[in-house]
Simulated assay, not measured.
Amino acid sequence: MTNTPPLKALRAFVEVGRRGSIKAAAVALHVTPGAVSQQIGLLEDRLGVRLLERERQGMRLTEAGASVHALLGNAFSQIDSAMDALETIKSRQTLVISTVASFAASWLVPRLGRFKQRYPHIEVRVEASSTLVDLRHDRVDIALRHGLGDYPGLDVTPLMAPVLVPVASPGLLASHQTLSDPADCLHYPLLHDSDRADWPLWLRAHGVNEDARMQRGNAFEDDFLLIRAAEAGQGLALVPETYAQEEIAAGRLVQVLDRPWPARFAYYMVSRPGASQRPEIRAFMDWITQEAAT
């Protein structure tokens, strides 16, 4: 309807009809009684019908006014509810965190409850993907990344360097020769991460000479896939100790040697320059730094 009267005039009519008094309506609307009277007069002139009549006790609705008052009152109640909802959304602080699925599932997500207890007004959305994000253009506030920490033009904070341990399924170990030394791992199929770097580095760090078997075996993009392959008995996997704790505790995997070794890569928190000035981002950064330290 293109001839809809101004909302200010309709609101004045609803308040006067609800309270039966121009003065009471003026108090509710935080305006003068003269302003309310003017809006009612403009509305009646616009519609060409009398909506309110003055009587000794105040103002009462005419038959025409009574026929629409409840509908208009409900409409303004809905508008008020919608505005309250928008204010709630405005006051809610939301963070978008990007990380790889394995880190999200094994480390970040189990700890997020503690962040929510400390900051109940901050909502966190975790986007788990191995795809690199462009923090300058993507709708991501913080990226938690596994790498060498080389992220030019961005703020970078080291979080932790995972310790790698060799694991395998009990069934695989039962069908092969005993493992007592790092060099014995070369008698098994080796399962690799995507760049095939960890096994050669781990073996060399434990005194094993260069051997072509260091590079043999299937490779997997994600550490969780690597763990699943090890569970299935496909070979030995070298994985972050934290990731395999649940499987080891349940007996689905066994740590084959007590030879932990720091990974070549570490976990870093990456953000746009100056992003920490936002209170919710600063709160998350401080919290996750504390969690990583413990």
Rank of each mutant, 00 (worst) to 15 (best):
R259W: 04
F76K: 06
P189Y: 00
P6M: 09
V256R: 01
Q290P: 03
S21K: 08
V167I: 01
E241G: 05
A64R: 00
S81W: 06
Y119C: 09
K23F: 11
T4S: 09
G20V: 09
G171H: 11
E63T: 04
R213V: 01
W107I: 15
L10K: 05
M59V: 11
Y243P: 00
L86A: 13
E44T: 01
T157R: 15
L226A: 02
Q38T: 11
H176M: 14
L43A: 03
R282D: 09
I122G: 08
N3Y: 06
A28W: 03
G17D: 02
R272A: 11
A128H: 02
D134E: 13
R145A: 08
R125F: 09
R50E: 13
R60S: 13
A70Q: 09
Q255G: 02
V126S: 01
I97M: 03
P240C: 01
F76E: 04
G113F: 10
A75R: 13
D193A: 10
G65M: 04
E291L: 13
H30Y: 06
R272Y: 05
Q255C: 12
P200Y: 11
P110Y: 00
A75I: 04
G207E: 04
L112W: 08
A292H: 07
D195A: 13
D184P: 10
H146S: 08
E246K: 15
L225V: 03
Q290T: 14
D138A: 15
H187P: 02
V208C: 04
R204I: 00
A275G: 02
P5K: 09
Q177Y: 04
Q93N: 08
P273H: 03
F76I: 06
S106V: 05
A105H: 13
Y188K: 01
P6N: 07
E291A: 12
V165F: 10
N3C: 05
D155G: 02
S169D: 09
A70L: 11
H121A: 14
H121C: 05
L132V: 04
L257I: 04
D198I: 02
M1R: 00
S194A: 10
S37T: 09
L191E: 08
A249G: 03
G41A: 14
T289P: 06
L159T: 00
P279H: 09
H146R: 10
V256Q: 01
V165I: 15
R118Q: 15
V126Y: 02
P5H: 07
G113C: 09
V31F: 02
S175H: 11
P33E: 01
P33W: 03
P200E: 10
T32I: 06
F224W: 11
S129G: 09
Q277P: 00
P110C: 00
V156Y: 05
P189L: 01
S276H: 11
A275N: 03
R252T: 05
I97C: 02
A249C: 02
L61I: 03
L225N: 14
E55S: 08
T178L: 14
R145C: 03
Q93K: 15
Q245M: 12
A266K: 15
A232N: 00
D80Q: 06
I227K: 02
T242A: 14
H30G: 05
A266S: 15
N74H: 09
R139P: 00
M214I: 01
D150V: 02
W261T: 12
T289Q: 14
L135F: 09
L86D: 06
D211L: 05
V239R: 07
V27Y: 12
E221M: 12
